[in-house]
Simulated assay, not measured.
Amino acid sequence: MSNGNKIAQDKLKLLYILNFINVPLTNIEITNFILDNNILDYFTLQGLLSDLCDSKFVVLNSKKGNEYYAISEAGIAALDMFGEILPEYFKNEVKQNLSYLKKEIKKHRELLGHYYKRKDD
């Protein structure tokens, strides 16, 4: 596989992950998942995220002091057109590992509280 094809496939992998999880992710969350599953190295990942943002396939939004990456409409369209390039083993790996990650992310972002009635008034 030529270097250009590898870069394109790696970008599609990132788009697939963002589309599958369907929850905006921080850079740390994306990085941890990618590195824990040996999908890309750190520097390649950061470069690809930057490229995807520059080309408007991924949007970076700020909320409550954190920045979150999410796939854009253009990214979804690109994934629809070229997603068949991704290997089936990769898709299966994402489905297995990302289901767990999605639950963990939601759990960490939820604010849980307990309250008790102290008096009738």
Rank of each mutant, 00 (worst) to 15 (best):
P87V: 09
K63Y: 06
D121K: 12
N38H: 10
K11N: 12
I71K: 15
L12F: 03
K64M: 14
T44F: 00
I7A: 10
I39W: 05
F57Y: 10
L35H: 02
P24C: 07
S55Y: 11
E104Q: 15
A77D: 01
K107Y: 07
K11L: 07
R109L: 02
E88D: 15
L49S: 09
L79V: 09
K95P: 05
D36H: 09
Y100D: 12
F43D: 11
N66T: 01
S62M: 15
F33P: 04
V94C: 02
V94W: 02
I28N: 14
L35N: 01
G65Y: 06
T26M: 05
Y16D: 04
K63L: 08
N38R: 13
I28H: 15
Y16Q: 00
L112Y: 03
G47D: 09
E84Y: 01
Y16T: 00
S50Y: 12
F33G: 01
N5H: 13
G75V: 14
A77H: 05
E73V: 14
L60T: 04
L112P: 03
K6F: 08
N61S: 10
P87I: 08
K102L: 01
E29A: 05
L25A: 10
D80K: 12
E110C: 02
F20Y: 10
R109C: 01
Y100A: 12
S62Q: 15
K91A: 13
I85S: 03
F43L: 08
M1A: 14
M1W: 02
